[in-house]
Simulated scan of single mutants.
Amino acid sequence: MRAVLAACRRLGIDGDARKDLQLEVIGVASMAHMSDGQLGRLLDHLNRDWKRGNQDRPHIGKIKALWWSLYWLGAVGDPGDRAISAFVQRQTGISALRFLDHTRAHSVIEALKDWLAREGVVWPESLRGGDGRAERFAVIDAIAGRFSDPAVTFQATRRGLGLPDARALWSERELDDLIRQLGKQLRAASQ
């Protein structure tokens, strides 16, 4: 309902015009009498011409990255948006990740980090500054640590990706590729 009201404010639609639109589009004048699906259809209608990227919503990418890290560690079976949204709803009551604002995202991010810590990710103290590289290395170390010979697996995967010996030279994209490769190997080995 809040998202519908925000979309109406953005479009300059007042309360009476909103009720008329709701009746026209959904067949129900009151949002209180709409199902979640009807509210979603109304919101889709209001946002049909609005294009906004996720550059102002970095929390969405952060949540997805943490969820994928859980997937690569074998802690979740489904890395898709539906599974993430179900987790978000259990944590916040908000029906989908796309409706999550940055103020409510903090609790979801912290819950995912706690879950990853239970799965063996050791978050460095420097994380308070939001160091993406340190976070990625923590996930890489946790995934590699699950192999019978972590050093051999890690080095073979690193060489296979063409990464130089010096870890300081790796970009965040290269670290993401390393997480994916190690995760694929770990998931394949556990099946």
Rank of each mutant, 00 (worst) to 15 (best):
H102A: 12
R128W: 12
H102P: 00
L112H: 07
G77W: 04
A111C: 09
S126Q: 09
V108S: 10
I109C: 08
A117I: 01
L116S: 02
S95I: 10
G77T: 07
Q89C: 14
K113H: 03
V88K: 02
V121F: 09
R90D: 12
S126Y: 00
A105D: 13
G80K: 03
F87L: 14
H102F: 13
A111H: 11
I109Q: 14
E119S: 11
G129E: 15
A105V: 11
H106G: 11
W123N: 02
L116G: 02
D114A: 13
F87Y: 15
D81S: 02
A111Y: 12
V121Q: 04
P79L: 04
R128F: 13
A96M: 08
A75R: 12
S126D: 13
R98K: 15
I109R: 14
Q89M: 12
A111N: 10
I109N: 05
I109K: 12
G130K: 03
P124I: 07
W123R: 02
I94H: 04
V121G: 06
R90N: 10
A117E: 10
R98P: 01
T92W: 04
R104D: 11
I84M: 14
F87A: 13
S107E: 15
D78E: 04
V76S: 04
L100D: 01
H102G: 08
L100G: 02
D101T: 02
E119C: 12
L100A: 06
Q89A: 15
V108T: 11
H102D: 15
A96H: 13
Q91T: 05
G93A: 11
D81C: 00
A117Q: 10
D114P: 00
S95R: 06
A75K: 09
L112R: 08
L116F: 04
A105T: 10
G120Y: 03
V122H: 08
L100H: 02
Q91S: 12
V122T: 08
A111T: 11
V88W: 06
L97D: 04
H106L: 12
F87E: 10
G80Q: 07
E125Q: 07
H106R: 14
A86Y: 01
A96E: 15
A83F: 02
V76L: 08
L112P: 00
G77S: 13
I94Q: 05
G93N: 10
G129I: 05
V121M: 05
R90Y: 05
A111M: 07
H106P: 00
A86R: 05
A117P: 03
S95L: 13
G129W: 14
R98Q: 13
K113E: 04
V121P: 09
L100S: 03
A111K: 05
F87N: 01
R90Q: 14
R104C: 06
V122E: 09
A86S: 14
R128H: 12
R90P: 00
F87R: 13
W115T: 13
H102R: 02
D78A: 01
R118W: 01
D81F: 00
T92V: 11
E125L: 08
S126G: 09
A105F: 09
K113I: 03
R128E: 13
G120E: 06
A75F: 06
R118Y: 00
W123K: 01
A75E: 15
L112Y: 09
